[in-house]
């Protein structure tokens, strides 16, 4: 039963990925702006100095003179062999470029996830256990503001406060956690807070609501009646079940974080895939854009699949209790 569900879900991914690949392939070609012009036509004054012979010679070498379906089939057949093509701008393998950038996005996403969860769980639990007290209102106020606040604004305000006024943290930059963990933490601190708040705000509300729900359940009342210390009860039972429900929320957010936040990466000059995608679009680097979108889409559907499967797997236990 479970295996059948899994196969069915994976089967459903195929049309989604095909649609995404067709869409990105067409969209990059529909955007005005000719990659060959961009390759050739740049000098410091942004003027065109393009000769027709060079233009045609390059178009032909890149295969842009062929019908679009031929180009698509060629691209897909290469992907199947694990080849995403060469970047137009740097002539390096797209695969190599993307995986140079992807770790930065993953590290930031994981840090943000930790920050988000570290904020959301205690806040949500406190709010629920002390419903309608000052603590609850403060927690809910935070959650409401966190949802409403544009993340780029929060980013700017944090930069103003911690980098410009206090000078505690660098405003931008990146260091790999594998090479220099301390500098990574310094650099990741502000962006992780921004993305973590994005995650924590809705999660806090969710956990609070679930906890309130759980605390009304019979099993909590029973445990209560048995005379177990209340803290144990809350944490062991109510929180556990609330967290299972929160898996979906966290999972969806993770899928989004792993796609690379263009805004946060732009504000903090973080060298991740979000910025790679934007840069690729600006230079009309078709292979880079196609590769990055495909990666983001695969990550998204894959994480979604994992979330659903994990939830399905956890679900029966909830019903049993």
């Amino acid at each position: 039963m479970f295996v059948r569900y899994l196969i069915q879900r994976i089967w459903q991914l195929i049309p989604v990925l095909i649609l995404v690949s067709v869409a990105v392939f067409l969209i990059v070609r529909v955007i005005p702006g000719d990659p060959v012009l961009v390759m050739l036509g740049i000098d410091p004054e942004e003027r065109s100095r393009i000769s027709e012979e060079q233009y045609q010679a390059l178009q032909q070498q890149l295969g842009f003179d062929r019908p679009i379906y031929v180009q698509y089939v060629h691209w897909v057949s290469k992907i199947v062999q694990g080849d995403l093509g060469l970047s137009l701008r740097s002539r390096r393998p797209v695969f190599e470029i993307i995986f140079e950038r992807y770790p930065a996005t993953i590290y930031l996403a994981l840090t943000a996830l930790l920050v988000g969860i570290a904020i959301a769980i205690p806040t949500g639990v406190i709010a629920a256990t002390r419903q309608n007290t000052g603590a609850d209102y403060a927690a809910m106020g935070f959650a409401l503001w966190g949802i409403a606040m544009p993340n780029f604004w929060l980013a700017l305000m944090l930069i103003v406060l911690f980098s410009l006024k206090l000078g505690w943290l660098p405003s931008i930059g990146y260091a790999s956690p594998l090479e220099n963990p301390l500098r990574f933490l310094q650099h990741a601190c502000l962006p992780a807070i921004v993305m973590g708040t994005d995650l924590a705000a809705p999660l806090t509300r969710y956990i609070r609501a679930e906890m309130l729900e759980q605390l009304k359940q019979d099993y909590v009342r029973t445990a209560w009646a048995k005379g177990l210390p209340s803290r144990m009860v809350i944490i062991k039972h109510a929180l556990k079940n609330s967290l299972i429900a929160a898996v979906t929320v966290v999972g969806l957010q993770t899928a989004r974080l792993l796609g690379g936040s263009t805004i946060v990466e732009t504000v903090f000059s973080w060298p991740g895939v979000g910025r790679l995608l934007i840069e690729g679009i600006y230079s009309r680097d078709y292979p880079i854009v196609q590769g990055a979108v495909l990666l983001i889409a695969v990550t998204y559907v894959f994480i979604n699949l994992c979330v659903d499967v994990v939830y399905k797997w956890l679900d029966p236990r909830i019903k049993l209790e």
Binding site: Q12, V24, I27, V28, V30, L277, I296, V301
Partner: peptide
């Protein structure tokens, strides 16, 4: 499946595409 594709597709690209064109 079409809806899934829209959700998996980075919205930024679409926005840029439209704004650029």
């Amino acid at each position: 499946r079409v809806m899934d594709s829209i959700m998996a597709f980075p919205g930024r690209l679409l926005a840029i595409a439209l704004v650029a064109s």
